[in-house]
Design a protein around this nucleic acid. Sequence first.
DNA 1: AGTGTTCGTCGGATGGGACAACAAACTAGG
DNA 2: CCTAGTTTGTTGTCCCATCCGACGAACACT
Lengths: 418, 418
Amino acid sequence: MTDTSAPADQVFLRRHNLAMVLRDLRDHGPRSRARIAADTGLNKATVSSLVAELAELGLVRDGDVERGGGVGRPGQTVEIDGRVCGLGAEVNVDYVAVLVLDLRGEEVRYVRTPLDVPRLGVEKTLDELAVAIAAAADDAAATGHDIAGITVGIPGMVETAPGVLRHAPNIGWREVRIADELVARLPGPVTAIRVENDANLSALAESAMGASAGTADLVYVTGETGVGGGVISDGVLLRGTEGYGGEIGHMPIGDPAHRCGCGKLGCWEASVGLAALLREVADKDDPVTDPSVDLEVRLAEIRRRAALGDGRTLRGIEAVGTALGLGVAILVNLFNPRVIVLGGYFAALGEFFLPAMETELDKRVVAPARGGCRIELSALGFTAACRGGAHVALEAVFTDPASVAVATVPTPLPGGMA
Amino acid sequence: MTDTSAPADQVFLRRHNLAMVLRDLRDHGPRSRARIAADTGLNKATVSSLVAELAELGLVRDGDVERGGGVGRPGQTVEIDGRVCGLGAEVNVDYVAVLVLDLRGEEVRYVRTPLDVPRLGVEKTLDELAVAIAAAADDAAATGHDIAGITVGIPGMVETAPGVLRHAPNIGWREVRIADELVARLPGPVTAIRVENDANLSALAESAMGASAGTADLVYVTGETGVGGGVISDGVLLRGTEGYGGEIGHMPIGDPAHRCGCGKLGCWEASVGLAALLREVADKDDPVTDPSVDLEVRLAEIRRRAALGDGRTLRGIEAVGTALGLGVAILVNLFNPRVIVLGGYFAALGEFFLPAMETELDKRVVAPARGGCRIELSALGFTAACRGGAHVALEAVFTDPASVAVATVPTPLPGGMA
DNA sequence: AGTGTTCGTCGGATGGGACAACAAACTAGG
DNA sequence: CCTAGTTTGTTGTCCCATCCGACGAACACT
């Protein structure tokens, strides 16, 4: 991720190596300086110097001494200090959520606030979100944590550069300067706020800490009210020129008889979105179609019926699964990912979808053996987008550790000695 | 493109800055050392040192002195030396071709050898290709050029790492170790040979030197026997995990009545490939459907009929154009490119396609104003893949200028003085 | 207790870039 | 013609980051 068109001086070099040591600790766990040197190819003396600087920044600290590690002097392990954190926030149709992750990837705090976002409108929803973020930040500060960055996920088309939401049909928002609006609502000096599509953030989360952690080529497909997607290719998120990439919901491969929420006929979303599933498995007066009932509960009921072998339910799921496989096949042909991760309700009903879906998939993928692609169900659940957001904030630290500089004050001395 | 997981020492730093100076000269033309310093942000003294090293490598040389450039001492311009070259080769259905491009991007040599590749088979075709490559290399050497690298484009699924072709249905090849086979056939020590899908190379060529040169987000779609595609996102080529990415021809969005060459029904290729066009605009006994006639000639005839306003022809082209727009809309929704480049016969008949295609496109793209995407017809014609191959070979030099080291002997002295 | 091994640090060497000063080469103007 | 002013490119010096060799420290094993 090093900028190829910037001049490289010693500062650049130092930053690169600082980042490399920090990432080594993240990816392979606590270890001695000698071991880091062996891992990275850097000189032992250099590693000592780098670790000292990272320690001064509050990013790493000395851990245990390696006892019983065979012959020779035991190593003094270095580990990532969990003080610095990233904050991920999410606005969805019926809730806002905030999640704080420390540099070690551990969850510090997670708060989900149910809200009727479309009814509440932009202003009040952002007020609520700002309160939730400020509360999480205060809470983190009280336990000695620092927030190094904030990323907000929104279910719509986002231009990341200025942090502007262009259009989010599911919550009815249009042209909202999310980043600026939040900065204005948050007290005190605020670190940079990034804004990103929620499915993109979920894809990043799956790639970084899901069941397939570390996968550099991954496509995330989530089924909720709409159908969203995020693509990670060769380790980087695909955004497109203006950040409009990954709009997979409106591929014209669905049944032309069904009208999509976007107004067009034959969108994929109209064949595999939540509405399509409910249409297939239930009648109008069936309680599972009642939007006032919690989605989790309704899905549990459908899962129950499927498990009992109910014909209508199974046929409906199979139909949706086949349509799902058709679209996923396109994604596999285009991106040749290592793994496809299914999220949202696809994950919840995954076991019943998979047979029909994989049958269709195998029919449509050109590459032999699906191009080495496997299908997986998301295990991150509703926290995926938030986790991805926190991850993005942390990634900035892993790319340029020195960026956390000054802001980080040493933990308040409990005793009070000068 | 700098490896983020390798230790950075001074050598790394030097390489980075050497590359930056060389790219500055490529992108902005000959200029003085002082100007390079201003462009890159490097110090004047550093630039002098870097230029001296590049000159010693034979990559740049002193050019004219800037006369009449206003007040002050005129600058001694530095320009890219065209001695070092990249070689691109292409295997297609009815020809093999070789193109040599010098470091300034100028064409040194282009040879196209008509061959009936499917009938000739793997061995003999590779023999012919090796002869063509060796001849081009000898020819280049005779005029004082050095080949720094070779890239071969193949119309099929390629695994780039070992340089192996997995499957190329249009020429009937399967599991061919292209790189190794060529090395064995070429005399003398051979620089690394890369192998890549031909549409991917064309996409790179369009992005690097087509009408939209410099575009970092670009999708190339070519219509020939099959329909191929190459995607460049954020400046890098999408390959996928195993290099199977970009298979756009078999998206299931075509008329289910038509069978594709792959055996499936409803592939996009079956609706917009060359066979589909001919089916729409001509009867079985029409000369334009005669495969023994050169494709260029047949396309010219179709273009003539369209220009005269022939109803059958225009309706046929419109039908294909609409189908083309449908598929392209998917690509725009997924990749949000800055430009879509149409190649192959799409480019040849472009003016007649565009209206129907753009109408369908606008109907199907979700992002406002097509997400800022424009449609363009390729101007590189049949040389696109070769150009892309040569470009890839040159790109290695622009990434690590020092890599051309030792091999480059100073041009033979014509006089013969010791 | 002695030996061998590994860890972490110290001092010096190497090398690359930044900075300031300077000579060179040109224009403009008297 | 000559001088002042400007820009270029080189030189010498300094700074800084990494590398290398050596050394003390800490441990296991005999």
